[in-house]
């Protein structure tokens, strides 16, 4: 009985996003830019621009594991393994934020939250259903974006350079640990903020604070300052997962019917 109730809340929340064309578009536009547009630009420009001797010298300083059969391929592999994953920190944050803002603040704004609270589920169960709905959508968007990007990259690299790319281990860590963890963090932050936020926009703004550090990290990666090894990445992932877990538990404690409806 409870399972049916929780399942239908999740379904309703996800449907609430997919039937809203504006929200649905905003969820997909950024991932498409990140996973199709940017990588394609990289691949084509690397293919067109003649090799710069300075750059080749720079590449030679990287570990042998990164060296590929051609300079072009090495550069693409470098971008694919060290720059593109950063987009996959932003995609789950954006999706989770849009979804969570609509599922919590949006329901409050439209005065449907109170009706939902009158169902025979406990506050905790309703909360879990809603967090899970945001999390599932966020992971679906992230994983499918990843697949799309992989296909686009492989096809382009294959036709332009006649070879295939092998994604590094870092992808595994990013997609299976870091992305889920930070989408949970984004969701809980939005939910915590939703007690105060009076509008969906206001709630989404609080998520911006999450995106900024990641952009900084991105810039760091790009200039080669922050060159994280897989172990560091794994450590970071575990840290994020821990933080997500603690935040989730804390935010749950915070809630009463009264606070939610205020």
């Amino acid at each position: 009985m409870k399972r049916l109730a929780i399942y239908s809340i999740i379904r309703k929340d996800i449907r609430g996003i997919t039937v809203n064309t504006r929200l649905f578009a905003s969820i997909w536009i950024v991932p498409i830019i990140f996973t199709v547009f940017f990588p394609s630009i990289f691949v084509f420009s690397i293919h067109m621009v003649p090799d710069d001797p300075d750059f080749i010298k720079l590449l030679e300083q990287f570990p042998a594991s990164l060296q590929m059969e051609s300079t072009d391929l090495s550069i693409i592999a470098l971008i694919a393994n060290y720059i593109l994953p950063v987009f996959f920190l932003m995609i789950p944050i954006m999706t989770a934020s849009i979804m969570a803002a609509s599922a919590f603040v949006g329901e409050k704004e439209r005065r449907t939250l109170e009706t939902l609270l009158y169902c025979p589920l406990t506050l905790k169960e309703i909360f879990h259903a809603k967090v899970l709905a945001s999390f599932l959508l966020s992971m679906f968007v992230s994983l499918s974006s990843f697949l799309v990007m992989l296909i686009v990259l492989e096809v382009e690299v294959f036709f332009l350079m006649g070879s295939l790319l092998v994604p590094g281990i870092s992808w595994l860590i990013v997609m299976l640990l870091i992305a889920p963890a930070i989408s949970l963090i984004a969701i809980t932050l939005i939910v915590l903020g939703s007690a105060k936020a009076k509008s969906v926009e206001e709630a989404q703004q609080s998520a911006v604070f999450l995106v900024i550090p990641i952009i900084l990290l991105f810039v760091g990666q790009f200039s080669g300052v922050l060159f994280l090894g897989n172990w560091v990445l794994l450590g970071l992932g575990i840290l994020c997962a821990g933080a997500a877990f603690v935040l989730l538990l804390q935010s749950m404690k915070h809630f009463t019917y009264e606070k939610l409806l205020k």
Binding site: K12, G16, R110, R111, T112, E114, T115, L117, Y118, C119, P120, L121, T122, L123, E125, Y257, L261
Partner: peptide
């Protein structure tokens, strides 16, 4: 509260449904 809700039908001004 959840068990109270199971036996109660509640209509208030702020309890709207999905448009």
């Amino acid at each position: 509260a959840n068990r109270v809700h199971a036996v109660s039908g509640i209509v208030t001004e702020h309890a709207q449904m999905y448009d």
